[in-house]
Design a protein around this nucleic acid. Structure first.
Lengths: 129, 129
DNA sequence: CAGGATCCTGTTGGATACTG
DNA sequence: CAGTATCCAACAGGATCCTG
């Protein structure tokens, strides 16, 4: 980054695209929980992800995983066994998105309590408990 | 933040809520462009915002501004003149969200070029040119 | 000038059932 | 086990017209 002030930097519309791109990559209902699960570094099976994300359907899960794979966030490793086994891990790109997300979490944690509408977000979180 | 590794920290599901909260606050089609405009620090009139965000309707703009105001991101100052004048500025909370967003922009800028679907995001950005 | 009301459409996410 | 196919509901976003 240059020595321009943060406001000047942000005021350049060219920064909108990258932000939108990033939010799109992790957007949707299930991608963030999936990244969260895989962040431990453990290769995780499809069925294991499905178990932890209690209310996700096969439809939504496979679609989210496919999109994350297309974005280069997760790696899909298929073992041709019977029964079939597929394990998912974060790629290097996937791991690299965690620090930015932590910045969002920090900001959110510092401000959501003072927001009356805060409660709405903790419902979805419980699906990963 | 504690001394736990970044992966362990992120793996705690409790961080999902703050991230979702933050994304929700700036989510939607117009909130990010609006924040971007106001980031200069200049109090900006409704009609001026509308002019710059070329394709926004009154409906969408007033709704986005109202939600941003409800989230404590923007301040609305109404002057009882004829014709009416309303100016919007970022609150301190609003300004404080810019550094986290810059982290997202940094990550996005570093990765979107290598992504074939990148072009899709620059269409929306042109509306703020 | 700065919005609100109403109606409409496209996309996102979901339910159910089925398969290599 | 790890998905697909098909159909459907809910909601975000938009078009058009109206007003203090």
């Amino acid at each position: 980054m240059s020595k321009k002030s943060i406001d000047e930097t942000y005021a350049e519309e060219s920064l909108l695209c990258p932000i939108r791109y990033t939010i799109d990559v992790v957007g949707g209902k299930w991608k963030l929980p999936i990244i969260c699960m895989l962040a431990s570094g453990m290769p995780t099976r499809y069925s294991s992800i499905k178990r932890k994300l209690k209310d996700v359907t096969n439809m939504m899960l496979s679609q989210s995983l496919k999109e994350l794979e297309a974005s280069g966030i997760v790696h899909r490793e298929q073992y041709n066994e019977v029964p079939p086994r597929v394990e998912y891990t974060l790629t290097d790109k996937g791991k690299s998105i965690i620090p930015p997300l932590l910045k969002l979490a920090e900001w959110g944690a510092g401000h959501m309590k003072e927001d009356p509408a805060c409660g709405a977000f903790c419902d979805t979180c419980q699906s990963t408990n």
